[in-house]
């Protein structure tokens, strides 16, 4: 009986998807990094449309493949800058190009991880499905999620989550969830990772796994990471300091540029 219902609903839903056209979420991007991942000129932005300016006239560049630390006291605009780059917060004035385009939503090459992701509580979702959501970047409206299984498996393995794949998301620890969100960004095909204090309140194993993933294993990500930890800074190629509404480049990218030359 239940099998008959399952078969019937399978056929019905196939019919629905056969009738409807597949419409992409956003227009496609050209792959590859154009040399400069982020180029800001006289950039000014505010956290809220009617709020005070978070930083002003920021001019800086981040080359492709460069791991950049974004440092500065609380409230100095680190989060706002990352949200501007992600396309979530509009700019007030000036201009910024990220991977050759003005920031906008719907870009599979750019991934943003908020400091505290606003996920629905107690949502019935397994970890595997959460990571699969990354493949939606390569699907469209009215399309069933049918490809990308291998990418999901690979991302699960790389972030040490394979054994947790069938666990409900709300039973995961903060560190496991953070790793899952990075895995989702990988599955999405992101080349530029915008990370807002990803190490805040992480357990040591998760921290080591994320570290290894971002800074070793020959990863070719361009990373822009807001961080508070001064011990961390040695690993970064470039440091942008935000203070009193200004952005200063403290340390230029060196060792990694050759990878993308």
């Amino acid at each position: 009986m239940s099998r008959a219902i399952a078969t019937l609903s399978r056929h019905l839903s196939d019919a629905i998807f056969a009738v409807l056209p597949v419409i992409p979420y956003a227009h496609k991007e050209k792959p590859g990094c154009p040399g400069i991942a982020v180029a800001a000129k006289q950039l000014t932005a505010a956290a809220r449309p009617d709020g005070p300016v978070a930083f002003h006239d920021a001019t800086f560049e981040i080359p492709c493949g460069c791991r950049t630390a974004l440092i500065g006291p609380n409230g100095s605009g680190k989060s706002t800058l990352l949200r501007v780059l992600a396309g979530l917060t509009p700019i007030r004035s000036g201009q910024v190009l990220i991977a050759g385009e003005a920031p906008r939503l719907g870009r599979s090459r750019i991934a943003y991880l908020a400091q505290r992701p606003q996920l629905a509580e107690n949502f019935p979702l397994k970890l595997r499905r959460l990571i699969q959501m990354g493949t939606y970047a390569h699907h469209g409206w009215f399309e069933e999620c049918r490809h990308g299984d291998e990418a999901v498996d690979l991302a699960l393995a790389r972030l040490g989550l394979t054994e947790l794949a069938e666990r409900p998301v709300h039973t995961l620890s903060g560190g496991q969830l953070q790793r899952a969100l990075i895995a989702r960004a990988v599955v999405q095909g992101a080349e530029i990772l915008l990370l807002d204090e990803p190490y805040a309140a992480l357990d040591q194993p998760s921290r080591e796994i994320i570290d290894r993933f971002l800074f070793e294993e020959g990863s070719a990500f361009t990373v822009v990471m807001a961080t508070h930890d001064p011990a961390d800074l040695g690993r970064f190629d470039r440091i942008l300091e935000m203070r009193d509404g200004t952005v200063t480049t403290r340390h230029a990218c060196s060792g990694h540029d050759h990878r993308h030359a």
């Binding site: 979530l88 991934a111 943003y112 629905a120």
Partner: peptide, 21 residues
């Protein structure tokens, strides 16, 4: 059924749904 993955995504993680467009 037709919008299952979008509805699920937007209900679970609204910001990520916005980021994907």
């Amino acid at each position: 059924r037709a919008l299952h993955k979008e509805l699920e995504l937007a209900s679970f993680d609204e910001e990520y749904a916005a980021l994907l467009g």
